[in-house]
Write a protein that binds this DNA or RNA. Structure first.
Lengths: 214, 214
DNA sequence: CCTTCTTGGATAGCGGCACTATCTAAGCAG
DNA sequence: CTGCTTAGATAGTGCCGCTATCCAAGAAGG
């Protein structure tokens, strides 16, 4: 496959593909000579992954580069590699640890993890972006006067845990071992909007059930 | 409160507040004379709402304006107003109805709603952005080779429905009738990142439980 | 062989967006 | 009177994901 063909198969313009090559999101093709390069199926797959991350997942290019770095890092074990790739995903605004709301949020989230018995998550509090995001969100709500304590969070956390179980079951059902990491990243990115849409739809359904349409 | 004080209380620069005033995200203060305006508590609350939508919810300014328009529209009934405000929220890329993946996604989602018995949601298929978002997400996954049929979606949808029930219970527990709409919008925006963070954390917990840390 | 197209590589520009900076005339506070 | 603040207007900034253009070297077709 040459550049133009890659473009045709993927629906991405050659200019954009060149941009991705420059940015290191796509490995260079096999250079045949100074003016020809050959691309394979793996380039097409990678290109689709990149597009999904950027367009559907709205990840900035720099984050995509980072995620791919972990996806491709053979020196790591499977689950570490998966975690590393997923951890690169969210754009976490660093919480201001001096802020009183942030400190209160830390306490609430810690209490939540205790209550749920999420011992593994407890070990990750210092490094997991998910933990930090949670603290930031709880702090933002507190600042606006909404008190999301552990007991109000717990039922949501239970539901999200069940969702995570479904996620991992789906992942394990995936036949090809080699593509699992890639699949996991894709799932993390693409399932998110899907879940959000389902959530909204469920809210509409439930609102209509309770109050009708007027 | 004068502009500078509003800025100090909210932590938002005067330049940015002026920008929001210009963009119509914040109602003008009570004009005392040509060079003085007085702002009240409601301005502070509105400003915090706007910041939450923009910074936490990452909504574009134009969407925030639209949402606020519905929040403030007294001519609508309560649940309609709520729906209108929430419907303005998502940035839905219009699905291309000619695309075969989109048509297949439509069929899958319709099958899902039948299976779940979400009769109300069925009535909204033509207008609800949540429905459209769902179709777009399913189509995107299909295009990448992932087959999310109704039976795979159903368990997720069940969980999201339970989440929605929690949402509405929380909303009803809110004492002040007047602020319910605002609360609903805030909840829709701020609970989203919170749920996402919980979801990620649950994934990390479950991954660690299944595979340990290596 | 000649013409036309394509390639990698480089560089500059664009359009959208959320601000941010600067200016002005008017007014207030000490 | 002096300095600071205000509303209002306008222009600029910085980032980001492309997009457009140019180039010299080479490939492809007749």
């Amino acid at each position: 496959m040459r550049l133009a063909e890659l473009s045709r198969h993927s629906g991405v313009s050659t200019a954009t593909i060149k941009y991705y090559l420059r940015e290191g999101l796509l490995p260079p093709g096999r250079q045949i000579n100074a003016t020809t390069a050959e691309y394979g199926e793996e380039h097409l797959r990678r290109l689709r992954l990149v597009r999904a991350m950027i367009q559907v997942g709205r990840l900035p290019v720099s984050t995509v580069r980072e995620v791919l770095g972990h996806v491709d890092d053979d020196s790591l074990g499977r689950s570490i590699r998966l975690g590393a790739a997923l951890w690169a995903l969210p754009q976490v605004p660093e919480p201001d640890e001096d802020d009183e709301y942030v400190r209160a949020a830390h306490r609430e989230v810690a209490a939540l993890l205790d209550r749920l018995g999420w011992q593994n998550a407890k070990l990750l509090t210092t490094i997991s972006p998910a933990y930090r995001s949670l603290v930031v969100a709880v702090a933002a709500l507190r600042r606006l006067g909404y008190d999301w304590g552990a007991e109000r969070l717990a039922p949501y956390a239970e539901l999200m845990h069940r969702t995570a179980v479904l996620d991992l079951d789906n992942l394990e059902a995936q036949p090809s071992e080699a593509e699992r990491i890639e699949t996991a990243v894709l799932a993390a990115i693409l399932n998110e909007p899907l879940l959000r849409a389902l959530h909204r739809l469920a809210q509409e359904e439930e609102t209509a059930r309770r109050y009708g349409f007027e």
